[in-house]
Design a binder for these strands. Structure first.
Lengths: 338, 338
DNA sequence: GCAGTCCACAAAACCGGTCTAGTTCATCGA
DNA sequence: TCGATGAACTAGACCGGTTTTGTGGACTGC
């Protein structure tokens, strides 16, 4: 038999469509007895409301969107992304909400996706990753009225819900650890300079360095292993040579480790390495890499909660604090041997 | 002003709703002149049809689903998954179709998701990954009438669209290469034995070994770095020691490389290593890993095309052939030095 | 005893599209 | 000259829910 509709259920229960709808959504208007009877029939017939009909009636889709403007190549190697999506999706599922995914070329295409989604009522809200300085997406989402949650730390004054990742504290943790080991000349191999969190890390490292009396140099890259390797080569050729390197991603750290070995530097004896991101990779290397570790899955869940709140009350931005990542010390760091 | 509806557009153009719908969908029933006028107004007002209304009318959602029952931890490190999704999504976008993603614990939960999606009309079709032996999902999808495409090579007799990845040919490539180098004792560290492609690889390797006169042993694992490392340790302890190892994933290959180093085996002098999967990882290692490389992004696009065809004609399964992966020889393989 | 409330439900409008069954009018062939 | 044909539209049913409005009966307070 064809898929039953709410009318079939209503007929079988001897009530109107409205009564079934009320019973199903736990709203007043039906007696407990009738509600129970209706729900039993629903259960027995395995009926579920048609998502499109429901979306049309109440104008909410039960879907949120995530657009990634990262190059497809970078996408998989960074476990961060997949972990975040897993957590996000788990958090959304608890609310019966699905996740629509989109991968695009650049920010302009990303904006176009948001415009489409809003015009077609495809999603109830979106998650914003990789905040830029300045970020045109926030204003545009505000203009088209699409609820959103940003992961990071948007410029003050921007009205948008945010799960704040405290990169400053994390950065300070690394700086203090290296300073405590006795390192004084540090090179920071950072990511894309257009990203807010890259700038924040650079800024935080600078100010921590000033406080701790460290000399810090920074190179920005596009997060690729190639540029990470090139930057490492340059950093190790410069005089005076740094005794420790900080990498913004574990992939670059792995590439950097390879370069160091090629150049005859023994890690950690001649050179200490710290990564801003942790994953199986950092654990698997020889030597294994000291890294900042965070529970990305839990972060995703938090973003999901934040987004659900924002979708429910779009006019009042929510601000949440992500837990501060912990430094996991492994084999790649040691006091300098000079 | 509120979002315009098709009625607003019709009013402005001085035609009926039906005419606008026809013009928009490129169907006959309106003159070229009128069509042009309508489309101009649509463009100027930036109107887009409401996805739910459209879905309700024509009962198609413009969405396909992908469920992953892999553990969340494994999910990110394997670049395969992200690459495939990127390609899949790109291929779907060309048809104006979106991708809904779901991560679940196990196959039972995955089946439940399919049932929900079908009952609620949430997606037009789904993509099936990691085929099992036997795979309960195929029969269930058939039962609930949800169009699907499988990636791999389902058991004969199962009616389902498939993008066939020729693991046999790929496996033979590896075996012949190692045989040509002069290796005779090979250990294969495989993935989950419940996966069809794991079995296929094991089988293909056995038969290739028979033909080529190789001695092949196999250990199955859960794809994790931990089990990969343990299996490597066991393989290198056994007598006679294998002169070459084949890993089913690059993550396990990396773990295995580490174990080999710990045990004092120099790669490739004392031991050759080949990986079934290629990614940045395999390139970054020291020594870099010889690996089977395939264009996963293109594979995703192919799966998208296959799914679109299947959704259009659900009763006639489509069978496509994925391109055979190429062996990329790097530093981890060499003739045995005995 | 009776108007006023409240409850439980039915009936119908509505969401914003698609699609079918007419209707009108110009064109064509005999 | 007139019916047949078909192109170009219109009107309205329809998709399957949600939400509003209406209604009969039980219960309340005075």
């Amino acid at each position: 038999m064809a898929r039953p509709t709410i009318a079939d259920i209503a007929r079988e229960a001897g009530v109107s469509k409205g009564a079934v709808s009320f019973a199903l959504n736990g709203r007043p208007g039906v007696s407990d007895e009738t509600r129970k009877r209706i729900l039993e029939i629903v259960e027995r017939r395995q009926w579920r409301p048609h998502s499109a009909a429901r979306a049309l009636g109440r104008s909410s889709t039960g879907l949120v969107g995530l657009v990634s403007a990262r190059p497809a190549r970078t996408l998989g190697v960074e476990p961060f992304f997949a972990q975040l999506i897993s957590g996000l999706q788990a958090g959304l599922s608890a609310h019966g909400v699905g996740l629509q995914l989109m991968v695009v070329e650049d920010t302009e295409a990303e904006l176009e996706v948001y415009r489409s989604w809003a015009a077609e009522n495809r999603v109830d809200g979106v998650v914003l990753l990789d905040l830029l300085t300045p970020d045109p997406r926030i204003a545009e989402l505000d203009r088209i009225g699409l609820p959103a949650v940003a992961l990071g730390d948007p410029a003050r004054g921007q009205r948008i819900s945010t799960v704040v990742a405290d990169d400053r504290a994390a950065t300070r943790t690394i700086a203090e650890y290296l300073a405590a080991l006795g390192h004084t000349r540090i090179h920071h191999i950072a990511g894309l300079p257009s990203l807010r969190h890259t700038r924040r890390r650079i800024g935080a490292l600078k100010s921590a360095a000033d406080t701790l009396g460290l000399q810090v140099a920074t190179t920005t890259t596009d997060f690729s292993d190639t540029e990470g390797a090139a930057a490492t080569r340059a950093a190790l050729t410069a005089r005076p040579t740094p005794s420790a390197l900080i990498f913004d991603s574990d992939l670059m750290a792995v590439a950097g480790l390879g370069v160091a070995m090629e150049m005859g530097r023994s890690v950690p004896r001649d050179l200490s390495i710290v990564s801003f991101d942790d994953s199986v990779l950092a654990r698997l290397m020889h030597p294994s890499l000291t890294a900042l570790s965070r529970d990305t899955f839990a972060l995703g869940e938090q973003v999901a909660d934040c987004l659900m709140q924002t979708v429910a009350a779009p006019t009042t931005p929510v601000r949440m604090q992500a837990s501060v990542p912990q430094l996991v010390v492994r084999e790649s760091t040691t006091p300098p041997q000079s």
